[in-house]
Design a protein around this nucleic acid. Structure first.
Lengths: 331, 331
DNA sequence: GTACTCGCCTAGAGCGCGCTAGTAGAGCGC
DNA sequence: GCGCTCTACTAGCGCGCTCTAGGCGAGTAC
């Protein structure tokens, strides 16, 4: 910075002004400074900047590798953060790198706020984190904790899905649940409620699973196995999320079960995957971009205005009917 | 830090020593300092630390969201970096966020080295970057540039795949290529060479594609369409990568083409996806963990030892035969 | 006794910026 | 001519840490 100042014939302070895009420098000087900086490859040191300013203007994002919906969310976080003048730091959870570790890394880099995508930690731990810094949980509400959250009205989404299937004439509608995954408890509960509402309580069935392809594959195998032992296939399956739906579809299709002729499948998320399917996956759309925008805005607003009451954004999901759902066999 | 020093009755320097785990403090003092720090919730400010130390001990990783193989690589980078005492910063490319932007973000955070996963930039730009900082390119060699690189011997992998198919009796083997994706040029070339070696030059056919599911779907539709117009399906397809193979499989399976009975499919990468398929994807395995380790080690070693000649690690890929390949129809 | 080492500790400079207070000079009204 | 404002710029402190140089007392060698 001193070099730039010297070569441009100005003071360091002026260089600082130019790089912060602040008033107080003539256009010519501004130009000259920027040109010189470019020449000698100068770029402001964010560590020093952070130190001097006392603020990092950085948002930390914890996400899970291999979770396409998280990728969708991150993709939405970047532009919104940039718009509000914030930097984004990513920290992934992975094998051997749990959520605590990922979050500590973010805090160590002095992120002012932390956005947790589908956190799996105990509510108490998240609450504790919320007392240390600004926290936004995406996909999973954390009641009674000092954190903002953004999620969809799982109930509505599931209700729409079941309604859609019931209207098509389905009765044997199975739900592969998402285990401890974000939103799973609510989806499970909503599934039960919706089935009852349609008088399908006797058909109610939840197969335990999680939010990976594997659980879809396993559930598919289970269903096929049962069919081979005389128990009829369900006519429709509501999967825990799109990845699970994908696994299920692959397994069933391979076994000669034609979707949606023999069986309808509904996913959840509307991640990239669902568009990519040859026939398109009928799924409950969560608007990743909108969720990302809410998350960033919550974080930034809370940073600005002290600490109001924890806020919760509940977005409406929307059933997106594509090719994997149709009338049950024989209708 | 001053608070801690005061309350522990020592100097700030001593606190610093304790937190850096350096010799020069008695066990009792060490204990006292740590206890006091814990009491008042002190944690060292990494920005200030970084600034004072002049080194960040941080590696920057540029990757692509939605690219499962990148997730595999990142998963391998974390532990190796930790082992060598380095921190990892992630910066994703996405829509509206090109490679330049992603890399600038990393440099702004004073990463000492940058690891590029499957960079798409011009070799000249990568070379320029290599003159500014330590750079390792993963998946794509950058000849004549001042960067280290780690990639697999694409030729060998493709050769093994074609050999495998040819031995099974396949002749009409089509290659869906990876467009500008990393390794694509080499794979395309190797495909041509291998086909010639097996006397299959007349059957040689490359369908343009890229490294996404979409290209697999499109290629699948093309092939089906051609079949409907009288041109027979190929008996085997070598996809540009696993995602492409997935898209292709979905399309073909949906259309009643049974894999591998009617058609064999071979992928490339052995990313998470391939294990998850119900029958398992036959694919050319790139060892993500090993590649990640090489990348990190290259970066760290180059940081340590000035700037030796650019190095290149070429790892042997290995054909992993699973369920999507078998003898051609009629054999 | 002196001289030297060694373990434990401190003073204080400086890392690269941001920011506050302040200056120099031009333009303006009267 | 004076005081005023406004723009363009500068001096220099301080952010929270690391690190070098050095101090101080106890132990050891001769």
């Amino acid at each position: 910075m001193a070099d730039v100042a010297e070569r441009a014939g100005v003071s360091r302070a002026l260089v600082s002004i130019v790089f912060r895009d602040q008033p107080g420098a003539s256009p010519q000087t501004r130009d000259r400074v920027l040109r010189v900086a470019d020449e000698i490859g100068y770029r402001p040191d964010s560590a020093a900047r952070l130190l001097a300013r006392g603020r990092s203007r950085t948002l930390g994002v914890m996400f899970t590798l291999h979770q396409p919906f998280h990728a969708d969310l991150v993709e939405g976080i970047y532009p919104e953060a940039e718009r509000l003048g914030y930097d984004v730091l990513l920290s992934a959870t992975a094998q051997g790198r749990d959520e605590t570790k990922a979050v500590e890394a973010l805090l160590g880099h002095r992120c002012e706020a932390v956005i947790l995508l589908g956190p799996d930690a105990q509510p108490a731990d998240i609450d504790a984190l919320g007392h240390r810094t600004v926290v936004v949980s995406v996909g999973r509400p954390v009641p009674h904790a000092r954190v903002d959250s953004v999620h969809t009205a799982e109930g509505k989404g599931v209700r729409q899905a079941i309604e859609h299937l019931a209207e098509l004439g389905h009765r044997r509608i199975v739900h592969i649940d998402g285990g401890r995954g974000p939103g799973s408890v609510e989806r499970r509960r909503a599934y039960r409620a919706a089935m009852r509402r349609h008088g399908l309580e006797p058909e109610l069935r939840v197969i335990p699973g999680d939010h990976t392809e594997r659980s879809g594959i396993d559930a598919g195998r289970l269903l096929l196995d049962e069919r081979d032992h005389g128990r009829p296939l369900p006519t429709a399956v509501l999967a825990g999320n799109d990845r699970c739906a994908m696994g299920l579809l692959m397994t069933l299709t391979r076994a000669g079960v034609e979707v949606p002729r023999d069986l309808s499948v509904v996913g959840y998320d509307d991640s990239h995957l669902s568009h990519l399917m040859p026939i398109g996956l009928t799924t409950v759309r969560q608007d990743a971009v909108l969720m990302a925008e809410y998350a960033v805005r919550f974080a930034v607003e809370r940073l600005g205005s002290g600490a109001p009451e924890p806020r919760e954004a509940v977005l409406d999901p929307k059933l997106t009917v594509r090719g994997t759902s149709g009338p049950p066999p024989g209708v």
